[in-house]
């Protein structure tokens, strides 16, 4: 068990290092560089060359990677090329915003998804199951911007219940900012809930044909209790995995929603940086996304072992 977690952690670290390499190489393959972007068309070759030297863009790739990694290990994300300010200062509040949106969405959608999944499995083949299936498929099939604009149209433009922009300022109170975030939360929850709910239902039903489920029925256990007490713990591993995937998606993949609602998150920050060829910012964002993905998958792998008594107890060999 401890050994398993140690191996997982080590593998996570290896993956993280390869992510830094990929992020660094990929961002350097982008056409154009910050010098041409900042100085504009009027720049002479001489000023461009001097500016590049100043930014250190002429050093070999390996050397620049080494320096970047070394600075990272010391907590230095580097300086933004366009604003000449430390990236850490700008990125921190953005990260907090993104995590807040993702966290609130997860708080709503994970219990909802698992609850609806259980409900759907308990009523397999009934009208309720079918209505839930159709709802889930619809929610998955609509592109997220479509759902977002639909929500804005109904709840903001027609009914006027919520603002159509979700820009959050530091001086806003908790309830005020929560009010502003309702629509993006709903839009995101629609998407991830459907996915997790379908997976919960499928995992539970795949366990339902096991002999120990039949045994539970023959002990006089009602169907609801059979599902929650007997099926769910044995179906937990795939459910945990799909929940982790969706949480990672909430951190990484919500650029579209952020743009639609003008929400000041990490995704928007990265898109801006790409447009301005602000390579260090793109790299920092990419790295944070990588950490989120690897970390959540690590947690899901470890949880999947913890819920399984066969894997939890030390392996005595045979």
């Amino acid at each position: 068990m401890g050994r398993y977690i140690a191996i997982r952690l080590a593998l996570g670290l290896v993956t993280l290092i390869s992510v830094t390499v990929l992020v660094f190489v990929a961002t350097n393959l982008l056409p154009g560089d910050a010098a041409t972007e900042i100085l504009g068309r009027g720049a002479t070759p001489e000023t461009l060359a001097r500016f590049r030297e100043q930014l250190g863009l002429d050093d070999p790739l390996v050397l620049r990677y080494g320096k970047w990694l070394w600075d990272l290990l010391h907590g230095d994300l580097g300086q933004s090329l366009t604003t000449q300010t430390p990236i850490a200062e700008t990125i921190w509040p953005r990260l907090v915003s993104t995590l807040r949106l993702a966290g609130l969405t997860a708080l709503v959608s994970v219990p909802l998804a698992i609850g609806l999944g259980i409900l759907s499995a308990a009523h397999e083949g009934t009208a309720l199951d079918r209505v839930l299936a159709i709802g889930a498929l619809a929610a998955i099939s609509f592109p997220e911007f479509f759902t977002a604009y639909l929500l804005i149209l109904v709840f903001s433009v027609k009914l006027g219940w919520f603002p159509n922009l979700s820009t959050i300022f530091p001086e806003m109170g908790f309830w005020e900012s929560l009010h502003a975030m309702v629509l993006p939360i709903v839009a995101l929850a629609c998407l991830v809930t459907a996915h997790m709910m379908r997976m919960t239902r499928t995992s539970i039903l795949s366990v339902m044909s096991q002999p120990y489920i039949e045994m539970a029925f023959l002990k006089g256990v009602p169907r609801g209790a059979v599902i929650t007490r007997h099926a769910l713990p044995n179906a937990a591993a795939p459910i945990i995995a799909v929940v982790a995937m969706n949480l990672a998606y909430l951190v990484v993949g919500i650029v579209v929603i952020e743009v639609v609602f003008v929400y000041p998150g990490l995704g928007q920050y990265m898109v801006d940086a790409v447009a301005k060829r602000d390579i260090p910012v793109v790299q920092a964002c990419g790295l944070i996304f990588g950490i989120a993905f690897i970390g959540l998958n690590l947690v899901s792998d470890i949880l999947a072992v913890l819920v399984n008594p066969r894997l939890r107890s030390p392996n005595r060999g045979r």
């Binding site: 120990y212 002990k219 044995n234 819920v307």
Partner: peptide, 15 residues
């Protein structure tokens, strides 16, 4: 009450 053929399969592995 019921006693099944395969006890290994008829006990819930997670309980």
């Amino acid at each position: 009450a019921y006693v099944a053929q395969s006890a290994a399969a008829s006990f819930n592995p997670a309980m």
